[in-house]
Amino acid sequence: MRLLKSQAILRLVNSYMVDSPQPANISYLWNFGSLLGVCLIIQILTGVFLAMHYTPHVDFAFNSVEHIMRDVNAGYILRYTHANVASFFFIFVYCHIARGLYYSSYKSPRVMLWSIGVIILIVMMATAFLGYVLPYGQMSLWGATVITNLLSAIPVFGHDLVELIWGGFSVNNATLNRFFSLHFLLPFVLAALVVGHLLALHVHGSNNPNGISNNGDRIPMHPYFVFKDLVTIFAFLLVLSVMVFYYPNVLGHSDNYIPANPMSTPASIVPEWYLLPFYAILRSIPNKLLGVIAMFGSLLILLILPLTDLSRIRGSQFRPLMRLAHWFFIVNFFILMWIGACHPETPYLEIGQASTAFYFLWFLVIVPVIGIIENTAMDIATIKKENLL
């Protein structure tokens, strides 16, 4: 029985990691998936070891993090690795999504693959937010207060929902305990979603960069793409090592090294850098409820791309208009990230509102209009060709 089980596991590994046929022309842009898998493994392992020494209590949380840094053997390496890999996790996931947008990886027959990926992104953001609260520094406390308070914008039961999450009338010990429990649990939910993502990927294989059928030139995953993945994995580990040992706080916020004080509000309350674009969208809308809807809508709107992209051509390789629109979208995303870190005042507020409008118009107007223009141009070219014949 054990032999049969081990054979089944080996066949599964062989199917996914060895014999899995992949388009021969996929580039290093397809390596972000393996990098994200490495990030998830590192985060789960370091998180488990950190949890052994962390105390989820408002009076001891900050000191327990300092204890990890100062007293636990290699504790500072664990803590800085966990914090910096979280940033790399989002760098890689944003690059992974950008590649998917450029090559239209969301189109049929990969709609399920894309949808699971969007859910993974949302769960990642929730996990990162919960983890940011755990050190219980100034930015942890006030970030948690501001973000959880957003739910009070929900009509009728919003305030009750916020108090339910807090376990009281403010961010307190019950809140920290709940956030710690969820932060420990969600990575395993994330791992399960990743398995579903891989299963969906295995059905139709990776998208072809040229936007054509995958049934042509294919080569096995091993050794070609396994060694290609190892190149970027080792490069990532090298950069990560440099950051952990020499620049551990370059992507962090200095206020989080100040113990949480509910009587002292920081000059500027901002989330981690990877949540700034969505924070900018939230602040760009004066109405609190509409701002919350827009913030969550900015993530869920990714799910409608299979419907709004009307072009018959897959990818942007041979679509100059779409290629230009794609780069405008990328630039706009960075503008939103910059605005999210600025004070909500003139001219940043107006720039944020313009960028937010462009963000939603890109999905709802620009992508479908470009698709219609391209389809019309193709039809006209076909008619002209038939007339010449």
Rank of each mutant, 00 (worst) to 15 (best):
A51R: 09
A325H: 08
M221F: 10
S206Q: 04
G100W: 05
Y28Q: 08
I26G: 05
L161F: 14
L300E: 00
Y136P: 07
L290S: 10
A24E: 13
D19G: 15
G216L: 03
N149S: 10
V156G: 01
K107T: 04
F318H: 15
L198I: 13
Y136R: 02
L389F: 11
N177S: 15
S298A: 09
P320D: 02
H82A: 05
A74M: 14
F62A: 01
N177M: 15
P368E: 01
G252K: 04
N214C: 08
I77W: 02
A8H: 09
Q7K: 09
K385T: 09
K107Q: 12
M125F: 12
H343M: 14
H57S: 15
I44P: 05
P223D: 05
Q43P: 04
V72S: 04
G137H: 04
I370H: 06
V13E: 07
A144I: 05
I372N: 00
G100V: 00
H53N: 13
N287Q: 09
I281Y: 06
E350H: 13
P347S: 03
I212P: 09
N31S: 08
F88K: 01
S105N: 10
V195A: 13
S264R: 15
V48R: 05
L141N: 02
S34F: 08
V93D: 12
V58T: 04
G100L: 03
A381K: 15
L237N: 09
A267T: 12
N177I: 14
A74T: 11
T46Y: 06
P277I: 03
G47P: 00
T148I: 12
I380Q: 13
M1N: 12
I165G: 11
Y94N: 08
V369C: 06
F328W: 10
S170P: 05
N256H: 01
A294I: 03
F360Y: 10
V85L: 03
F32Q: 00
F225C: 05
F278K: 07
L324W: 05
L134E: 09
H183E: 00
N256P: 01
P266S: 04
D160H: 10
V367H: 03
F227R: 13
L164T: 12
L305F: 05
W338A: 11
W362P: 10
V239Q: 00
I330Q: 01
G371D: 05
M139A: 08
L310Q: 12
